[in-house]
Design a protein around this nucleic acid. Structure first.
Ligand SMILES: [Mn+2]
Ligand SMILES: [Mn+2]
Ligand SMILES: [Zn+2]
Ligand SMILES: [Zn+2]
Lengths: 130, 130
DNA sequence: CACTAATTGAAAAAAATTTTCAGTTACGGA
DNA sequence: TCCGTAACTGAAAATTTTTTTCAATTAGTG
């Protein structure tokens, strides 16, 4: 279970698994790519500042990723492979699983850069908008 | 010449090629991934509000792209293929040319999504940081 | 159950971005 | 080349977003 792993990472780092943090985590599990206000709407009992701080903490633990694809900041559960399809017409963000990357052609050995994760954003028009 | 094309797009859209806009464009040509304040330092004669407005306009014309890779907003000249290498240790952002994507595996035909451009971010550690 | 470092949230502060509006200017047409 | 005008600019003010402060509270250890 996703939440269990997150609790483990928090405890391991000397952080408490408070009700507020759990509430924010649950909100993140419910849906990807939410804005701060959308997350907040899912846990109105948590103070604004605490939501900011929790997102920061989860970010530093590698649990959450902040992204900005044009319209303000959004948050999502982090994945090492992350592939987005973004409709430039309606703004819809969706994810797809199959990784279109050829590992051979990544800058692994080439430049001396150690690859840990990647995020691909494909821009275009979704079916509905065509 | 890059600036020539940009002027064409502005005129074509009914926008004026003002000295302020040209100054911002020149700043963008000088270096990729600059913050607003870095851009502003390169054209101090342009008012803050005008820089914001120019970046918006150039963005809507597809000339400039705004990105946020962790530390605040940054701006760059747009490319249909864009490949970033981001060091999670020192925060350095660099670009690489060779496209590691396999077009076959892009969600082109698969989902009915019409691909127009893409941006790949590879996260890891740069040579200097290892 | 007590202790304490970690956490919370309201208020205030700071930073980032947008709106307003009166004055200025680029540029197409005469 | 000169005019008319829609487009543009920038200072100030407003708004939005994010961070800091600090006194009160609490999770988790022993
Ligand atoms: Mn995602
Ligand atoms: Mn770039
Ligand atoms: Zn769409
Ligand atoms: Zn580095």
């Amino acid at each position: 279970m996703r939440l269990g792993a997150a609790i483990g990472k928090m405890r391991g780092g000397g952080y408490k698994a408070t009700p507020q943090r759990m509430a924010v985590l649950r909100a993140l599990v419910e849906e990807q790519h939410q804005s701060l206000e959308e997350i907040r709407a899912r846990c109105p009992e948590v103070g604004l500042v605490t939501v900011y701080r929790t997102l920061d903490l989860l970010g530093s633990l590698g649990i959450v990723r902040r992204l900005d694809l044009g319209d303000g900041a959004r948050y999502e559960l982090a994945e090492n492979h992350h592939h987005h399809m973004i409709c430039e017409s309606c703004g819809d963000i969706s994810e797809f699983e199959e990784c279109p990357l050829d590992p051979e052609r990544l800058p692994s050995g080439r430049a001396d850069f150690e690859v840990r994760a990647h995020s691909l954003e494909v821009y275009g028009r979704c079916g509905a908008c065509r």
